[in-house]
Computed example of a mutant assay.
Amino acid sequence: MKKFKEFDIQFVGLKQGKHQFDFEIKQKFFDAFEFEEFNDANVHVDLTLDKKSTMLELTFECEGFVNVYCDLSNEPYDQEIKSKLHLLVKFGDEYNDENEEVLIIPHSEYQINVAQYIYEMIVLSVPNKRIHPGVKDGTLSTEILEKLEAFQPKEEKENKDGETDPRWDQLKKLLTDK
């Protein structure tokens, strides 16, 4: 974890109480994790470390954007993200991160690296289905969207007189004739 040295937080030597840490996350951070779904990123992370006598409470809050491709139009856009993560750090005999809300670290540790938690919080805050805002409000016009519209199934429309297709009327009679 040498590449994430700036995310090491040394809690030994800190007084009990709350301590603030700020991180600016850019695309370089995700490149280090070899995560290629984001084109660009600009996320501000506020970390509050509440040091207590027997444990640490970490509260991560992030806000910003990541540039991703739309799932419908394949156009890049900035997806706003906002997320919060709460983590308890307790001390034990050996390292254990099986529980996602509680991290157990050995008594001999003097620092904690928070890069993995920041990475997971940001990646999980992006929606599963990414849709460009222009698709939602109809302002985006691309060739792909026009093709999707052309291949969309058409609904059966009634005639101007309010009559339906006589073939369907005959089939409907079969359902009612019992």
Rank of each mutant, 00 (worst) to 15 (best):
residue 173 K to Q: 15
residue 145 L to G: 00
residue 166 P to I: 04
residue 76 P to F: 03
residue 30 F to P: 04
residue 83 S to H: 07
residue 126 V to R: 05
residue 96 N to G: 09
residue 30 F to N: 10
residue 91 F to I: 08
residue 25 I to H: 00
residue 122 I to Y: 02
residue 172 K to H: 05
residue 84 K to M: 07
residue 71 D to K: 04
residue 162 G to T: 10
residue 122 I to Q: 05
residue 66 V to W: 01
residue 109 E to K: 10
residue 27 Q to F: 04
residue 22 D to Y: 04
residue 2 K to W: 09
residue 118 I to E: 01
residue 131 I to S: 00
residue 94 E to V: 11
residue 19 H to G: 07
residue 90 K to Q: 12
residue 65 F to N: 09
residue 86 H to G: 11
residue 10 Q to K: 14
residue 122 I to D: 03
residue 89 V to E: 01
residue 20 Q to N: 15
residue 87 L to W: 09
residue 159 N to W: 00
residue 35 F to L: 09
residue 135 V to I: 07
residue 141 S to R: 11
residue 89 V to H: 06
residue 24 E to M: 10
residue 59 T to N: 15
residue 52 K to S: 15
residue 116 Q to Y: 11
residue 87 L to K: 11
residue 66 V to A: 04
residue 98 E to R: 13
residue 73 S to P: 05
residue 140 L to Q: 08
residue 26 K to V: 05
residue 156 E to D: 12
residue 87 L to G: 00
residue 15 K to W: 02
residue 5 K to F: 13
residue 118 I to F: 08
residue 178 K to S: 11
residue 56 L to M: 08
residue 161 D to W: 07
residue 3 K to H: 09
residue 166 P to M: 04
residue 14 L to Y: 04
residue 101 E to F: 01
residue 156 E to G: 03
residue 64 G to K: 04
residue 18 K to T: 08
residue 91 F to N: 02
residue 130 R to Y: 03
residue 85 L to A: 11
residue 103 L to N: 06
residue 108 S to A: 13
residue 178 K to A: 11
residue 104 I to E: 15
residue 26 K to P: 00
residue 20 Q to K: 13
residue 53 S to M: 12
residue 46 D to C: 03
residue 113 N to Y: 03
residue 111 Q to V: 03
residue 114 V to G: 04
residue 59 T to R: 12
residue 131 I to F: 09
residue 93 D to P: 03
residue 46 D to R: 07
residue 170 Q to P: 04
residue 157 K to E: 14
residue 53 S to Y: 09
residue 123 V to A: 01
residue 86 H to E: 13
residue 143 E to H: 09
residue 65 F to V: 07
residue 123 V to R: 02
residue 57 E to L: 13
residue 12 V to L: 10
residue 32 A to P: 01
residue 59 T to H: 11
residue 25 I to V: 11
residue 6 E to P: 06
residue 169 D to R: 10
residue 85 L to G: 05
residue 165 D to G: 08
residue 54 T to K: 14
residue 146 E to G: 02
residue 154 K to S: 11
residue 39 N to S: 09
residue 111 Q to A: 08
residue 8 D to H: 08
residue 75 E to I: 13
residue 117 Y to P: 05
residue 116 Q to D: 15
residue 167 R to L: 08
residue 55 M to Q: 13
residue 86 H to Q: 12
residue 110 Y to K: 13
residue 33 F to E: 08
residue 26 K to E: 12
residue 46 D to N: 13
residue 27 Q to R: 15
residue 57 E to M: 12
residue 15 K to E: 15
residue 67 N to A: 14
residue 131 I to Q: 09
residue 38 F to Q: 01
residue 16 Q to E: 15
residue 160 K to Q: 13
residue 146 E to R: 10
residue 69 Y to W: 05
residue 114 V to I: 11
residue 44 H to F: 14
residue 97 D to V: 02
residue 81 I to V: 14
residue 96 N to F: 07
residue 162 G to K: 09
residue 145 L to F: 00
residue 34 E to G: 05
residue 89 V to A: 02
residue 143 E to V: 09
residue 151 F to W: 07
residue 9 I to M: 03
residue 91 F to W: 10
residue 175 L to D: 10
residue 136 K to R: 14
residue 105 I to F: 02
residue 62 C to S: 10
residue 92 G to A: 05
residue 65 F to G: 01
residue 5 K to G: 01
residue 14 L to G: 04
residue 42 N to T: 05
residue 103 L to I: 01
residue 145 L to Y: 06
residue 148 L to G: 01
residue 114 V to W: 02
residue 2 K to C: 06
residue 34 E to M: 10
residue 3 K to M: 12
